[in-house]
Design a protein around this nucleic acid. Structure first.
Lengths: 202, 202
DNA sequence: TTTCTTTCTTGACGAAAATCAATGAAATTG
DNA sequence: CAATTTCATTGATTTTCGTCAAGAAAGAAA
């Protein structure tokens, strides 16, 4: 397991991102928020830090408070980027925690990041029962989101996928190196470069 | 809304599929199973029956007891098949129920099917509280499943995706017309035909 | 700054898939 | 059953993308 850096105590940051996220599924009282933040383990990671390697069985779950985490599979020695987790996104390692199965992919910090780290299910937690439905709602939303992402990927051409990314996640195009985006869109860097050129001249 | 046919009372069928599914997430007592099946609304559908049309706001959730439901998007007048739901699979219409948003896709029965139909969240249900964690676990599994499906789709070529389908869901290749499979794999029917030919001669 | 490395762009060529068109096979219907 | 429709295959051609290779641009480090 990777060494984790020292915990962080920037309450404002946590409040803005995590509490705001939970508020989408329930009403979070001042008091609840306080208890939550007290018990939260927030840690800072450096660009390039590896959260998870292929083959590892990780007991951790993450929530991105700040920064960006890239997911990739290693096939024939080549990195295939499949996801970017940014601010306000949960990273659930279902296989590791529930099925005790080794991960098939890597998780790496693309930027210096603040992540909240913890086991997905802490029944001893003072708010565990209250937040059970919140976890369900969050999971349902995640499930629905990924179903739609899959469908959108299946339906569209690489050029359409790039235009889609421009609309839905314009920040990614700014902060992520283009050859990672290319992989994420399912094309080579050369092709993405040409797609961009094609679009510009319109 | 489509007219639903009359309810079914084949207890054995229900037990085999739904209770078995729930047992993956909790221990279901004889008594629980009985209460569940009593309250279950199972309905029969004919091949071609439409469960959901683009633009509809559906309050229903489904669980496939028997048969197959195809999901597709309509783009430029063309059907793009994005999923096949078969025995033991939940069909959650998150957008419709939680976000009150119109569906972007269609759901059609590919075969005569038995589906359990119901709202996803019936708090008055006698087992609602007990099954809250089950719903969460199920959603988490679904979420993880679709994340992996998306990654696998992104990573592999059409030929690899077909070989993958042969391994993971060989039943689909038997029961689903090839031009639907082609769409699902992201290629034209002609290309799938050639992929199969290529594979045969090895 | 200069150098070195990394990332992006461009061109030439080959491979794979889409498209168009025709034919054959299989299923459905009267 | 034949007639019709639907679906699968095959061939010829075009389009798109991948691969290889060479530079250009942009950052990072000395």
């Amino acid at each position: 397991m990777k060494p984790l850096s020292s915990p962080i105590l920037d309450e404002k940051l946590k409040e803005h991102v995590l509490i705001q996220y939970l508020s989408r599924f329930t009403t979070v009282s001042e008091e609840d928020a306080h208890i939550l933040l007290e018990n939260l383990d927030v840690r800072s990671f450096k660009k390039g830090d590896i959260l998870l390697r292929e083959g590892q069985i990780s007991p951790w779950c993450y929530f991105v408070l700040k920064g960006c985490v890239r997911q990739y599979y290693l096939v024939d020695g080549e990195e295939k980027t499949t996801n970017f987790f940014t601010e306000g996104t949960p990273i659930n390692l279902y296989e590791g925690f529930y099925k005790n199965a080794p991960a098939k992919y890597y998780l790496v910090c693309l930027e210096d990041s603040y992540l909240s780290v913890g086991p997905p299910e802490d029944t001893s937690h003072p708010l565990a029962t209250k937040f059970e439905p919140v976890c369900r709602l969050s999971s349902q939303e995640e499930s629905s989101k990924y179903q739609e992402m899959l469908a959108m990927y299946m339906i569209h051409s690489p050029e359409e996928r790039y235009l889609n990314l421009l609309k839905t996640r314009p920040d990614l195009i700014e902060r992520v190196p283009q050859y990672y985006l290319a992989s994420y869109l399912g094309v080579t860097p050369e092709t993405l470069s040409r797609i961009r050129k094609r679009i510009m001249s319109k």
